[in-house]
Design a binder for these strands. Structure first.
Lengths: 264, 264
DNA sequence: AGTATACACTTCCCTAGGGAAGTTGTCAAG
DNA sequence: CTTGACAACTTCCCTAGGGAAGTGTATACT
C-alpha cells in the first residue's frame, strides 16, 4: 500500500488512462525503469501477471502484451508454470544493424556514384556456384565507386543473372536501386537475401581506387539476393574502408530507454 | 476464387485448432508463405483484420497478434486507417547478432585462456574519460589471450574500476565471467553496456601474440559496461582476427522460414 | 519411508466483442 | 468548382474473463 506519492518528474507509478501513450507501453516503461533502478535484479522474479493486473488496474491481455514486449527486448524471460524473471545482460544477444551504412548511401549534393564497369562476362566457378548457374554462362558484371565530397567511401562489385527478358538490369544499374534497397520502398523482384560481414584488407587495386594507403583494413559486406522463384539474382560485395563505417549495439537497459517511450 | 485444392505437403490453408501450434503462429506461417510465394507482393495490401477473422475463423485479438508479429519481423508495415502492406526487403533492417562470437567463447577441452597481465595502473586520459574517473586514478588493467586448439583466437584488453570494496575484480578476472557474459545466466552487477565494432589492422604486438603475419585484418570489438548506479565499471576491447569471425544476417522471407514454425 | 494425488500457482492462448483514431471517398451545400 | 460534412473503411487499444498446460508443494496413501 503506497500512499499516493507526488508525481515526480517522469517517475510514473500508475497508468494514466488519459495519456496518449498506450497502457501496455506505460507499464513496459514502469517495469523497465524498475529493472534499471535495481528494484528487480537479474534472476529476480517479477510480479505475476494477475498481480500486475490488480496492481495497475488493467486487464490480463494488456499485461500479457507488456510481458511479450519486454521478453522480445531480451530484458526478461518467461517460464510457463514458474514465473517471469529478469535476465542478466548477455553479449550474445546484442544486435547491430546497417543503419550506419544507410547513412553512407544517403543521396545529397556531395554524393556521387561512378560506374566503373558494366558488361557481360562469363561466370567463373565461384560466381557460377553462388548464382546456381553453369560455369561459363553469361552474367552481368558491374563495378562502381561511391564517393562523398570527393572522398571514396566504398567500392561495389556485383554479378547479376543475365536474362534479357527481365528489366532487372536497369533497376540494378540505377543508382537509386541501391539507395532504395537501404531506404525501403523498392517494390522489386527481390524476395530474399543473405548478408555476410567480414573484416578484410584492401587489395592493391581497391586501395588505389579508394585512395587509401596500403595496408588498410576494411569491411567486406557480401550480399546474395533471390527472386520469387528462389533463384539467385545477384551476388556481390561492398568494400568499405574501416574509417568510413562502424557498428554499435547495446545490451541491458540503458538509462535513456527507461525514461523515454521506448516502444517498438 | 481458388477451388479447394488438395492439402499438399505443408501447404496449410486453414487453422488447425487441434495443433500444438498456436493459431496466431499458424496464421503467421500462412501469410508468410503467401508472401514468399508471391501471392502478396511488396506494396500490396493485405486483407483487413476483420477479413482475416472471417476467413480463418479466429478472433480479432489473435489476428492482431499475428500482424504484430509479422510487423516486428519487418515483413509488413501497418498504417492506421489505411491498411497493412507488404514491405519490400530493406538492407538497413538486417540485424546481425553476436552468436557467432559466442561460439568462440564456448569452453571445451580445446579452449584455453592465458592471463597475460593483471595489475593496477594509473589511468591515462582516454581511459579516465571512458570510465569517468580522474586522470591518473588507479585502475585494474588486464590482458588475456584466448586460444582454441593451440591456435590464438582473440586478444582482450580491459580497464576496470579499482574499488577494493567490490568483488568485481575476481568476477572479471575469472575466465567464466567472460563466458557467462555471452552465455547468460550471470547475475552480475552489470546493468548496461555499449558495444562498438570496427575493422582494424593488427598491430605488431597483436600480430605476434595472435601468431598472424603482418599485415592482417581483424575485428575490433569495444565494450563499455555500467553498473546499477550508471557508473562505468569496465572498458576494453577484443581483437579478433578476420579468419575467426564473421557475421551473417538475412532479409526478406527465406523459403525455410515460410515452411517451418518460425515463431519466437 | 516412499509414492501418488490433489491443489495452488504460474504462464500461455484464446474468445467476442467495444470504442478511439486515422484515412478515403461520396455527396450535398455554398 | 470548391468546400465541408459524413459514412465507411482501416488499424489500434482495451476489457473481462475462460481454459490449457506446466511447476512446485503439501497431503494422503501404500
Amino acid at each position: 500500500m503506497v500512499k499516493e506519492p507526488q508525481p515526480l518528474f517522469n517517475d510514473q507509478l500508475e497508468i494514466d488512462r488519459d495519456s496518449y501513450e498506450p497502457a501496455y507501453i506505460q507499464l513496459a516503461n514502469i517495469l523497465r525503469r524498475q529493472i534499471a533502478e535495481g528494484v528487480f535484479r537479474p534472476g529476480d522474479q517479477l510480479p505475476s501477471e494477475s498481480q500486475l493486473c490488480h496492481r495497475y488496474g488493467i486487464s490480463p491481455m494488456t499485461v500479457r502484451r507488456t510481458i511479450n514486449l519486454l521478453a522480445d527486448e531480451g530484458l526478461i524471460s518467461t517460464a510457463q508454470g514458474r514465473g517471469t524473471f529478469v535476465k542478466g545482460i548477455e553479449l550474445s544477444e546484442a544486435t547491430f544493424g546497417l543503419r550506419e551504412l544507410k547513412d553512407l548511401f544517403k543521396p545529397d549534393q556531395q554524393a556521387h556514384v561512378k560506374l566503373l564497369d558494366a558488361r557481360v562476362v562469363s561466370a567463373d566457378e565461384r560466381t557460377a556456384r553462388k548464382l546456381e548457374i553453369a560455369c561459363g554462362a553469361p552474367v552481368i558484371y558491374i563495378r562502381r565507386l561511391f564517393s562523398r565530397a570527393e572522398q571514396p567511401v566504398f567500392y561495389h562489385r556485383a554479378y547479376l543473372i543475365y536474362d534479357p527478358t527481365r528489366p532487372i538490369v536497369e533497376a540494378e544499374l540505377d543508382v537509386t536501386s541501391l539507395q532504395g534497397l537501404f531506404a525501403g520502398g523498392n517494390h522489386s523482384l527481390l524476395k530474399f537475401g543473405t548478408l555476410n560481414i567480414e573484416s578484410t584488407l584492401l587489395t592493391n587495386e581497391e586501395a588505389e581506387l579508394l585512395k587509401r594507403p596500403y595496408p588498410c583494413a576494411a569491411f567486406y559486406l557480401e550480399h546474395l539476393f533471390y527472386d520469387y522463384d528462389d533463384h539467385p539474382l545477384s551476388w556481390g560485395w561492398f568494400i568499405i574502408p574501416a574509417d568510413c563505417l562502424h557498428f554499435t549495439a547495446q545490451v541491458g537497459v540503458s538509462p535513456r530507454q527507461a525514461i523515454h517511450s521506448g516502444g517498438k
